[in-house]
Design a protein around this nucleic acid. Structure first.
Lengths: 178, 178
DNA sequence: GTTGATACGACAGCATACTGTCAATATGGC
DNA sequence: GCCATATTGACAGTATGCTGTCGTATCAAC
């Protein structure tokens, strides 16, 4: 289940050569954003591999874990989960279906909506989440301490700004809520 | 071609509720890292959509653009590109094959290696890259100015540290280079 | 109530990326 | 030169996520 990625050239974790020499006349801020985009792509791959490893202890994957975690506190409709995770409705539906097959979650009637059934954790699903959560805590605490909580918070804040700006400047691609 | 994502609840771009109340006893740094992971996943989706939109002007996709850009300066073997992009060799091979079919790139003999042919841009491929690059510059400069170059650089630096720490602490998952 | 817009689930198809496996080719130690 | 190891391309299969489309349900405006 472990992802078989190869480590990239250490030098390549720095600013991409193409962006560094700024061959296309971008502004410094444009260069910085481009470098950030590059590293977010790489980090996404590395973090997916890490999450797969953590979730693997409970025979789950990164994607299944995300859906399980989304319904940990309260049952939710598939469309609701997809908005929360910034995924297409159909992607979450597929994962929800396999979670139901594996008896980790189940669909229950929604008193407020005839068709939008609520996805709810089963005891097995809750046990799986507990197992993953313990491993995740150790992993996050260790890596977090290594980088530093304050720096991580600042970085996350900037990423949040980028995300907000993206959804505002491209309202066509990212539909309005409700 | 436009990705049909729905904008998430604005509140959900903040720290995930699960992490915020720290129900599992993580340290503050562990919480900060967990929040960063959440936002990197979301940002990856939003940036893939943005890149697809930029590359769409040349009838390309985010994935094809990445491979084209990787061979912009010099032809490279598929395995070389995959290391650079932190992707599996096979994923890049598939994209390279379709790029060849579309006459945007071509395989040429490698004087240093009998089997590892080099992927090289064709004039069409170079023209496609030029078209994408112009749009990307505008996009990156605009969004970069909105956030601020210094903040973006600092955030990218922290993400680089996380990436480096991940490849060091999990050498099994991310194989050593050469 | 009726109606138009929206939300939702369902189905089909495609794009992207991963894993596993194999044979052929390099590569480095001896 | 020989051999163990790593690299590379190729093939098959799977997981994740997106698009398009449909019919039905919900909801708000009237």
């Amino acid at each position: 289940m472990e992802r078989q990625r190869r480590a990239a050239d250490p030098r390549s974790t720095r600013v991409d050569a193409r962006a560094a020499r700024n061959g296309r006349g971008r502004t410094p801020a444009g260069d910085a954003l481009s470098a950030l985009v590059t590293i977010v792509f790489r980090l996404h791959g590395a973090l997916t591999a890490a999450n797969d490893r953590l979730a693997g202890r409970a025979h789950q994957t990164s994607a299944r874990w995300q859906v399980l975690a989304a319904i940990e506190d309260s049952p939710k409709a598939v469309a609701h989960i997809s908005r929360r995770l910034w995924l297409a409705r159909q992607s979450v539906q597929r994962v929800a279906d396999v979670l139901e097959q594996d008896a980790l979650a189940e669909f229950t009637d929604n008193p407020d909506h005839l068709r939008a059934r609520l996805l709810r954790l089963t005891p097995d699903g809750r046990a799986a989440l507990r197992g993953i959560g313990a491993a995740q805590r150790t992993w996050a605490d260790g890596l977090g301490a290594r980088i530093g909580g304050v720096k991580l918070e600042r970085a996350a804040h900037v990423l949040g700004e980028v995300l907000r700006a993206l959804s505002e400047t491209h309202p066509g691609a990212l539909r309005k809520r409700r």
